[in-house]
Structure formats: C-alpha cells, structure tokens
C-alpha cells in the first residue's frame, strides 16, 4: 500500500496544515511517511508544493517521481494543473475552485476549470463556499482534506482523529468546526467523484 500525494497551493494558504494532519494520522497507523515542504522565498505568495508520501514500506525518495502521484490535492485551481506531470494514470485530481488572484495575468477561471474537468478522475469543489456555509472560510483547507479523504489509504475516521489531535490545543469549538468542514468535503467527494 502506498499513497503519493502532491499538495499544491499558494504561499500563505496553509497547505502544511493539511500535510501535518495526514502525517499525524499516518504515524498513528504505524505507516512510513515522508513529506517534503516548500520553505523560504515562495512562501511570499508564490506557488508552493508539498510532496507527501505514505506507505506501509520504507520510503526512499523525499520527492514523488513523475507520473506516479495517486492524488493531486490543490487548494487553488491553477496550481492543481501545474503538477499534472506527476499524476499517475490512475490518480485523482482534487481541487478547490476558488482562485487566488495575486498575479496580473491569471488566466480565465472558466478555462482553468475546463482543464480540470478534462482529467479523467477529478473532484472540483468550491471549498471556500462550503466552509463559509459552515461558519468560517478559514476551514476551507479541512473541506479540501475531506474531499481528498476517499483517495487516501487511511480511513476517514483516522484522519478525523488526526484533526482532533492537531487542533486540540485551540479548543473544542475549533475542533468541531474543522471536523464539520472535513465531513462536508468528504460527503461532496463521495457524491461527485
């Protein structure tokens, strides 16, 4: 069993919170894990990517080889497309549809979304809207994590437990909000995969 995940987004969107929850859940399942992050200059609003590898066997490379990612999980639609060469023929693209418009030449959003729907296996979800409905747009990353959960070889309950542990310090209300967001994303993915 292995799940190779490309986590993509824009510096400042907090993709590392998704990575740390999956990492925590994997470690509790006694799985092997490697997770390469982007630190430094790109964190100032540039394209950021994290390679997250989970396996029941020892993992060699910190980076996922091209053509072998089981999942591209992107919290921004154009960023999902940037890493397509990493996608395996059986892999899924799960992306937020709300763009981050911090560059003057951002392409037409409809064209971006059309490229995503061209992919054989994809889930496109407006995580910001769903998180807003739940009560806090900042929970959109947890909506995304939920939407990706069916494609990760860790049971959704175990990921939820990871959310509880990671957010425990911030209080019960924060945990509840994030779990609610996670479940909403999960339901969307199950309905729309």
């Amino acid at each position: 069993m292995k799940t190779d995940i490309i986590l993509a987004g824009v510096g400042g969107q907090g993709i590392l919170s998704i990575a740390s929850i999956l990492g925590d859940a994997a470690l509790h399942e006694n799985l092997f894990l490697k997770q390469a992050e982007t630190h430094g200059m790109s964190q100032r609003g540039g394209a950021v990517v994290s390679h997250l590898r989970i396996s029941d066997k020892a993992i060699a490379s910190d980076l996922i080889p091209l053509g072998s990612a089981d999942l591209i999980l992107s919290v921004e639609p154009m960023e999902a497309l940037r890493y397509l060469p990493y996608l395996s023929p059986t892999g899924y693209v799960v992306t937020n549809t709300t763009p981050v418009l911090n560059i003057p030449n951002y392409p037409e959003l409809e064209a971006v979304l059309a490229e995503i729907t061209k992919q054989a296996q994809h889930v496109a979800i407006d995580a910001d809207e769903i998180a807003g409905e739940i009560g806090n747009k900042r929970a959109s990353n947890m909506v995304m994590l939920g939407a990706a959960a069916p494609f990760v070889h860790i049971h959704a309950d175990k990921i939820e437990a990871g959310i509880s542990r990671i957010f425990a310090k911030k209080g019960e209300a924060v945990v509840d909000l994030n779990i609610k967001a996670f479940r909403a994303g999960l339901q969307f993915a199950l309905d729309n995969r």
């Binding site: 540039g46 080889p65 996608l87 392409p107």
Partner: peptide, 28 residues
C-alpha cells in the same frame, strides 16, 4: 528520482503535460 532514472536508462514516466494557460506565480 526522475533524473536518476534517465541516467540509468530507465523508461521515462510522466503524467499529463501542464496546460499552456498555466502561468508562473512568482513570490511577491
């Protein structure tokens, strides 16, 4: 691992190419 694979003469693997509309997003 991909560059090493090429140097070893292994078969090249790659997913779909990046669509032309994707532009750079430099830090700011």
């Amino acid at each position: 691992a991909d560059l090493v694979a090429l140097a070893l003469g292994h078969e090249e693997k790659q997913g779909p190419s990046v669509p032309d509309l994707v532009v750079n997003r430099p830090p700011a």
